[in-house]
């Protein structure tokens, strides 16, 4: 005996759910800076475990591929800093490096691994420094990013 199968897409409620999902999908998929911040905190976790105090204050935004941004920061001689940058966008890669106020590279060490990057600096003098953040590659036109730092 054949049992009639009801087409689920003819049910008004299901149709509405489908439409809502279609409408919401881009928003759900769109990477957000808040998500990037969560990833940046994740990248900071090993350093927290090494005794670095990770600041709650952070920077963030979105950048086009190869676009750079300077993030100014007051650093103190005698402290040891790690800056951790991340995006939540899969397939993207980024970098962060630190320069002094005369434009000299002052990275003590740095690493870059896909959507995460980190740089350590032990300032030789107290003053204003600039973290230069950049998206190296990305599957999207704009890539959300976030940068956190820790000190000890």
């Amino acid at each position: 005996m054949n049992v009639p199968v009801k087409n689920p897409f003819r049910t008004p409620r299901l149709k509405m759910v489908l439409i809502m999902l279609l409408v919401a999908a881009p928003a759900l998929l769109r990477a957000t800076v808040d998500d990037a911040l969560s990833f940046a905190y994740e990248a900071a976790l090993p350093y927290y475990k090494q005794g670095y105090s990770i600041r709650k204050d952070a920077w963030g935004g979105d950048l086009a591929t190869r676009e750079k941004k300077a993030v100014s920061s007051q650093l103190f001689k005698g402290n040891d800093y790690w800056f951790l940058m991340a995006t939540d966008l899969k397939g993207a890669s980024l970098s962060v490096h630190i320069y002094d106020d005369r434009g000299n590279l002052v990275d003590a060490e740095s690493w870059q691994k896909g959507r995460f990057a980190g740089v350590r600096v032990t300032p030789k003098s107290t003053g204003t420094f600039f973290a230069i953040v950049q998206i190296l590659k990305s599957p999207e036109e704009r890539t959300p990013w976030a940068l956190v730092y820790g000190y000890k």
Binding site: T32, Y48, A58, W59, G60, A146
Partner: peptide, 11 residues
């Protein structure tokens, strides 16, 4: 969000 410093959530 954009172009601003961010407020971190519970670390």
């Amino acid at each position: 969000l954009l172009g601003k410093s961010l407020r971190g959530e519970g670390i």
